[in-house]
């Protein structure tokens, strides 16, 4: 990994992600130090005192967006972490052990890949009440199948490769092979998947919030969109309340998608054709 020149895609992705990170850091400053006061007038357009105007309650939109970055990003990262962990373990087990375990896990993966995730998440979140951790949990528990499938394919490929055969030939145990050899080898794929899943998790969280399933005391970008939709900001033509959060969501997800796709390209090609690169 170290010392590899990042591709154009990865550079752009990293740039966008660092922009969001700056936003997160600034959110502590903006929220607590340069506090934009509540304006008296709701829906006041962008001005000197409120750079992005105010919403229906007279809250400063810029402050809301900076604060929302924390929620969206943390749900994205933690949710993706959970889903990637589940997917990796299931995929590695099913690909390496094979047999009936593979059949069962493969069947489960296939099931959850087809059932549309967002509607199921909506129902579950509605039942569980949409707190921060519930949203993380629901995203983590339902977004693993694609990861599992990719890891399984890679593990399957490794399992039949010569070096694993050689390991069996010197009496290495299955557990040893999975943890010392299979996992390090699928790490690249898993990393790419993790980054891509962050973008998916951010989009999913935004979708859930948009439909009204988020913690209103801790608003994310999607929540701002939800309120803009339900409280008539659109009909008022108050574009400053809903255009900026949408741009923030798109920018963040684009950043992670670009980085993830770059990583995916780097690790998809076999070790042979990677030669000049590492």
């Amino acid at each position: 990994m170290v010392g590899i020149k990042p591709s154009f895609m990865e550079t752009t992705g990293l740039l966008l992600i660092s922009l969001v990170l700056v936003m997160v850091i600034l959110s502590f400053v903006v929220g607590n130090v340069i506090f934009y006061p509540r304006s008296e007038s709701p829906y006041s357009p962008p001005s000197q005192s409120n750079l992005l105007g105010t919403d229906d309650l007279g809250d400063d939109v810029l402050t809301l967006i900076f604060r929302g970055s924390r929620v969206s990003l943390s749900i994205g990262i933690i949710g993706s972490l959970v889903s990637t962990l589940i997917g990796t373990v299931i995929g590695a087990l099913s690909g390496f052990c094979g047999g009936s375990l593979d059949d069962i896990l493969g069947w489960l993966t296939d099931l959850f890949i087809v059932i549309p995730a967002l509607p199921l998440m909506i129902v579950l979140t509605a039942y569980l009440s949409p707190s921060f951790w519930n949203v993380v949990l629901v995203i983590g528990l339902l977004w693993w199948p694609t990861t599992a499938r990719l890891v399984r394919a890679r593990a399957w490929q490794l399992r039949s490769s010569t070096f694993v055969e050689g390991l069996i030939g010197i009496d290495a145990s299955k557990i040893y092979i999975v943890f010392r050899h299979i996992l390090p080898n699928v790490l690249g794929v898993v990393l790419a998947r993790f980054v891509l899943s962050i973008s998916h998790a951010i989009l999913l969280e935004a979708g859930l919030s948009f439909i009204g399933l988020s913690d209103p005391t801790n608003p994310s970008w999607g929540t701002i969109l939800h309120f803009a939709m339900t409280r008539g900001a659109l009909l008022q033509g108050a574009w400053w309340t809903f255009v900026p959060p949408g741009i923030a969501i798109s920018m963040t997800s684009l950043g992670f998608i670009l980085l993830g796709m770059g990583l995916e390209q780097r690790y998809r090609i076999g070790p042979k054709s990677l030669e000049g690169k590492i």
């Binding site: 948009f210 809903f242 798109s250 997800s253």
Partner: peptide
Amino acid sequence: SVPPYWMAIV
């Protein structure tokens, strides 16, 4: 990477 519902709002 743009959420389609936001695209719709815009």
